[in-house]
Design a protein around this nucleic acid. Structure first.
Lengths: 200, 200
DNA sequence: ATACTTATCTACCACTCGATACAAAAATGG
DNA sequence: CCATTTTTGTATCGAGTGGTAGATAAGTAT
């Protein structure tokens, strides 16, 4: 069977460029002209590969999730619930101010509100944000069974708290806050985090 | 001297409608068609009254700030730093889930990232977010002088922490979280807040 | 080589964007 | 009344939007 003309661009490389544009300008703010220029391809190639602007975003989000899953594995591997929280917030302070990327978090910058015709974008981003919150919640529930998180603690509330602080740090970083400011927030936030029952 | 034809719409009422549109769709996502329809006026009237789309946003932000200054006065009037923090977070849990408004916070929803030609919008919103952080910081510094906030506490870091949690709660609310979820976040966050030195 | 399949490029589609020119309308001052 | 001033509605501007038609290029299979 004939294979056809091979693709002349690297899909992952192009996705990285698209990701950066969505990250910096949001879904609505990212025009096809900006995207195709950054990706180094023309509109028909984009549509053949990703179907639509929304499809391109989803592909970029998948790639973003891949990147973060490495971080998240490290975070969840913390020995105690407390250490997981610490790893979570400090790694976010680093990643959200990494000069290799636009400041903040793609899942926040991508678009909390959108215009007509892209109403489902905020939902898409929210569901992806919810994923790491779920991972944290399950990790904390396990920690509670293991005894390194007090029985009186609320795993769901703690996970939601950390996820909320993470979103807030995304907002903070996007407005130009430096790494030290985010570390401060992480440090103060950890003061809200309980240890095993004996410690509190 | 001739006075000219009187304006046929109420400026403040129109601004409230515009505010809601910006709140729900963000700056880029809010089209002139949506704005003029919501405001019940035609483009020339909009431009005569507010100069530009950006001018309209700024006018809406001014009105938003007016609304919030009442809340902020109540917050800052708390007897102790701890009480100020408590009032700040709980009032935000309420306001960000007030069914009378779009969910979340206009200063966050309005746009963290924008397209070409509106690059200064995120700055405008960030500077308005920074305002309440400054108010909190100054209040906490005063609390430290008064002795109801420990000498070892860092007023700037605490204010930044609260402001960050507030932004995070805005993100959380915009994705449909209910009031109880926001209250949980507020409650957990307050665990990070120190009292007078004796208490910790 | 020829057939077939797929990707790419040029050019363009219908539509929406923010913003405005212009004339009619509605007020006041004389 | 008329002159003046300002607002309003209609109708539209040029630019840019997301997306595509159609021809051409570049590969594989036979």
């Amino acid at each position: 069977m004939a294979m056809g003309r091979p693709r002349s661009f690297d899909t992952d490389k192009a996705l990285d460029e698209a990701m950066e544009v969505f990250w910096r300008h949001g879904y609505d703010g990212a025009s096809l002209a900006m995207l195709t220029k950054a990706m180094g391809i023309k509109p028909p190639s984009l549509y053949a590969a990703f179907g639509s602007k929304e499809g391109l975003l989803k592909a970029a989000l998948d790639r973003y999730a891949e990147r973060r899953s490495t971080h998240m594995r490290y975070v969840l591997a913390g020995a105690t619930a407390r250490e997981v929280a610490e790893r979570f917030l400090t790694s976010i302070a680093e990643s959200h101010t990494d000069p290799a990327n636009p400041p903040g978090c793609l899942l926040v910058q991508g678009g909390l509100a959108c215009g007509e015709g892209s109403e489902n974008i905020p939902f898409e981003l929210a569901s992806r944000r919810a994923q790491s919150e779920t991972e944290l919640r399950e990790r904390f529930a396990a920690a509670q069974r293991d005894g390194d998180l007090g029985a009186s603690a609320d795993p769901a509330a703690l996970a939601r708290f950390l996820s909320t602080v993470a979103s807030g740090m995304g907002v903070l970083a996007s407005s130009g806050a430096d790494r030290e400011a985010l570390r401060d927030v992480a440090r103060v936030s950890l003061g809200a985090f309980p240890g095993p029952d004996a410690a509190r």
